[in-house]
Design a binder for these strands. Structure first.
Lengths: 202, 202
DNA sequence: GGGTCGGCATGACAACTGTCATGCCGACCT
DNA sequence: AGGTCGGCATGACAGTTGTCATGCCGACCC
């Protein structure tokens, strides 16, 4: 009785290579591959796989949101997040969304098949160092408004431009940014953006 | 007579998966895998492979610089760059460094083995859309100083902090940044950093 | 109800940022 | 030699950003 899986990753080369790697295992069967979250949902509905390997960074529907919807639509399919960026905030979001496992892409290739089997067996799979860091860091300290404003400021918009997007005064936007700068421990908004992205807070 | 290759990529999972994918080809033999540029050079010296698959983003010695050194040390080994980021500036740097091919990781997995064979046969392998864009964009317009200052400003340093790093006045640093902003078509330094990174100019 | 708290909003002030006019210097051409 | 050009350096000016004191409001707890 083999484990049936679906793989979702936007980079075709990586997707195909992961499929090749897992297809080598006698007890794992690759039922399908998806290039984004929406495709992953469709494939999961069609094939009802045991496990879905899910990247976070994907165009359109990202891996976190896709996990949330997949858990709601097909509770029998368990999700193993496999991500380039081992950010503490991502781990938390992934678990909140209902993921059963979380692996960074710099983990040894030999561990992947085992992780799939463990997730299939109903166990959680976590990078222990990252889990520790996630606890140590504490939760995302930014308020909803602060995240929103910081996201908009992230691609270099001025305070006035952000203000008109969210229907606030420019002063208020600067105030939220100032709060975000304080909470991230940054010295200005550019650093705040970097730190927040690095921790997976925005 | 099979093609002997070395694979360099810092993400172990991707490295292993690419190795698995290529090992399936009867005429390709994976002689070794490396986690960074330095390891790749050592493996190339040891095994004298026909082709080296090289990621750009790697800790320590990056893929571009590793390619340059590998071409100098082992001219018989041809380099195929395989990168996450299909940036026009990267393509140019890679070719200048002596790479024989340049593939993005979102290319179909079926093309990888063929690309390896072509590179081995002495042909160039290029993403044609990217090559066109690279020509259209023209060369990196930033001067050495502008790149240096922009790189330092990229992680949120103030003009004064950058100035003391490079022994210039704060005003001069702002002037270089202003020039970079103009040349990138950005509206402020944060946008200039984004655009320059996106095109592979810094 | 009264007190406290966190999130949100605002304008005033100081610091920083982006632009510009100006000047210096070496490379290149005629 | 003289002219032109691009890269580099600088300070003055106007616009943007970061901080702060202040106030409003709903949630929560005696």
């Amino acid at each position: 009785m083999s484990v049936r899986i679906v793989i979702a990753d936007d980079q075709a080369l990586v997707r195909g290579a992961l499929a090749a790697l897992l297809a080598l295992e006698p007890d794992i069967e690759v039922a399908g591959v998806a290039a984004d979250g929406a495709e992953a949902l469709a494939l999961a509905a069609e094939h009802a796989p045991d496990v879905c390997l899910m990247d976070i960074q994907m165009p359109g529907l990202d891996g976190i949101e896709a996990t949330r919807r997949l858990r709601a639509a097909s509770p029998a399919t368990r999700v193993l997040i496999v991500t380039t960026f081992a950010r503490p905030g991502y781990l938390r979001s992934a678990l909140d969304a209902g993921a059963a496992g979380f692996m960074a892409k710099d983990a040894p290739a030999e561990e992947l098949a085992d992780a799939v089997r463990r997730v299939h067996a109903g166990l959680r799979v976590l990078d222990s160092a990252l889990a520790e860091e996630s606890l140590f860091e504490g939760a995302n300290p930014l308020s909803e408004r602060e995240r929103q404003v910081l996201r908009l400021a992230a691609d270099g918009r001025s305070a006035a431009a952000v203000a008109s997007e969210v229907f606030l005064s420019a002063g208020t936007v600067r105030n939220h940014l100032s709060a975000a700068i304080g909470k991230t421990g940054a010295g200005n908004r550019a650093q705040a953006v970097r730190i927040a992205q690095d921790k997976g807070w925005i």
